[in-house]
């Protein structure tokens, strides 16, 4: 089986967007380009309002990813879990497509007898361990998110701890929205070391607008950059694009 690169956007937010394009449309755009969008909603004590919840679910659904709403305290465990689950889900989609090519149009892993399923699962596990991964993290820094930023930073370190334990390579990039001057601002360019974040994250200022849609659009276009970056680093390895399930 060919080895490709998995691309994910991880959106961390605590509420509804109120500026720019529809974030659900932008998530659909990401999916069309083979990028999975996962969303984590961060709660305070109280529950999130209905609109915020619906938007979070909508973005993840349109982006072919996973959504989860949690209290700030559970953020670390959730961020790494959602990322891993989304990886497995995408890889399973890839494996399912290969199965369909071999066994006919309507066969997926669930249609295999349980004994065979185990063998397929081992392939998915193997891929999850070795595949290259690019994660772009989009952090909402508007209004009430400000107090949660130290927790977000902690969760991102925890994520890099989990992902860097894999055999495959990782690239991380971090954007925040709203930015100081624009809708969205890059705080960390593609790097295998998410720890580099510590120097830039605390300087953030948070504003009133929540331009989730524009932030997603910018994130999608930032993935174009890794293509040229990778081809510089790895010359003789061919580059495959993986489309999501």
């Amino acid at each position: 089986m060919r080895k490709g690169t998995l691309r994910q956007i991880l959106l961390i937010t605590d509420g509804c967007s109120n500026h720019g394009e529809d974030p659900i449309a932008m998530a659909a755009l990401a999916k069309e380009q083979g990028i999975t969008v996962n969303v984590i909603g961060v709660l305070d004590q109280d529950t999130m309002d209905e609109n915020g919840l619906r938007e979070i679910e909508g973005i993840a659904m349109a982006g072919g990813g996973i959504s989860q709403v949690v209290y700030a305290k559970q953020l670390s465990q959730t961020v790494q879990m959602v990322t891993r689950k989304a990886m497995t889900q995408t890889l399973q989609g890839v494996v399912n497509r290969e199965l369909k090519q071999i066994l006919g149009s309507n066969v997926s892993m669930e249609d295999l007898p349980p004994e065979k399923r185990g063998e397929v699962m081992e392939i998915v596990d193997e891929l999850g361990e070795t595949v290259e991964l690019e994660v772009l993290i989009l952090v909402d820094t508007s209004g009430s998110m400000k107090t949660k930023l130290p927790t977000v930073k902690e969760a991102l370190f925890d994520l890099s701890l989990s992902l860097n334990a894999r055999m495959g390579d990782n690239l991380f990039s971090v954007f925040v929205f709203p930015g100081k001057h624009e809708d969205v601002e890059k705080v960390l360019d593609w790097t295998p070391k998410l720890e580099a974040l510590s120097s830039v994250f605390p300087k953030l200022t948070s504003g009133g607008l929540t331009p989730t849609g524009p932030a997603l659009r910018r994130a999608v276009s930032h993935f174009q950059k890794t293509r040229s970056l990778r081809s510089l680093i790895v010359r003789d390895e061919s580059y495959f694009e993986e489309s999501s399930m």
Binding site: M109, E110, P114, R117, G118, V120, M121, E122, V124, D125
Partner: peptide, 13 residues
């Protein structure tokens, strides 16, 4: 979650 069931069965085997 079929994925986790299958993984666990693999380990138990």
């Amino acid at each position: 979650n079929g994925t986790s069931i299958t993984s666990e069965v693999n380990v138990l085997k």
